[in-house]
Write a protein that binds this DNA or RNA. Structure first.
Length: 221
DNA sequence: TGCCAGGCCGGGT
DNA sequence: ACCCGGCATGGC
């Protein structure tokens, strides 16, 4: 594997991005109609296939429950039943409630007011809610609040460690810093970059059977 | 059939 | 500061 010099990291990260964009085109994330739906999806997709999350969202939509007010009133048992296809339904019902309760306790249920904070303090506040960790927080900030926070996930670590950028046991914050410190803080680019990495991971970078020969990034190996 | 999916928490070293 | 078991459904 080639050695990567520090000064080459910014251009290499952009080369990666341009190759992915050229191969897959814009991904148009987040897949959701409203900011509220994006937040719900971000919590429901924790360690879960998105196709399963879609079924849960569909159930909530069918009952007209995808608003802060309705979700605030619904009972745990009913909510857990509706999000059942997303897996971990009991714990995720609690996590959704923790976020909603925080929203009503502090902002009268208004996302507009919550997102009035700057990105750094918003992140700290989200991380204080039980059930919201670093990836979920950054997803909410990037895709719902529209601040340029880079989102790291399992695919990001896998792809970039396999290509020699980082060690495979790198922490979340370290992996995030690689992007934040070496790329322009561009909202659209951060948005697409993360989505493209997920797309790459799903199509070519599975744990058991990576398809490195056909991968659009094979020339970087 | 077993493995995996866009993590996170709580309790233990 | 890490390490690990638990949480659960649906698709291949």
């Amino acid at each position: 594997m080639r050695a990567l010099k520090k000064k080459d990291i910014p251009s290499s990260l952009l080369d990666f991005y341009n190759s992915l964009f050229k191969s897959f085109g814009p991904q148009g994330w987040w897949p959701g109609d409203t900011r509220f739906e994006i937040i719900i999806g971000a919590i429901l997709t924790q360690n879960t296939a998105w196709t399963n999350v879609e079924k849960a969202i569909k159930n909530l939509k069918a009952k007209g429950l995808l608003t802060p007010e309705k979700m605030h009133r619904i009972e745990h048992t009913e909510l857990a039943g509706l999000i059942r296809p997303a897996g971990y339904f009991n714990i995720k019902a609690k996590r959704l409630k923790h976020f909603i309760n925080h929203l009503f306790d502090n902002y009268n249920g208004s996302l507009e007011r919550l997102f009035r904070k700057n990105a750094a303090s918003l992140r700290q506040e989200l991380l204080g809610i039980n059930g919201i960790g670093p990836e979920t927080a950054d997803s909410i900030i990037l895709y719902a609040a529209s601040y340029p926070e880079f989102v790291v996930d399992a695919y990001t670590k896998r792809v970039f460690s396999r290509h020699g950028f980082v060690g495979e046991d790198i922490s979340y914050e370290e992996m995030k810093a690689v992007f934040m410190d070496n790329l322009p803080k561009d909202l659209t680019m951060f948005n697409e970059y993360h989505a493209l990495i997920v797309r790459l991971g799903k199509d070519y970078c599975k744990t058991k059977k990576p398809l490195c020969e056909q991968c659009p990034l094979s020339r970087f190996l």
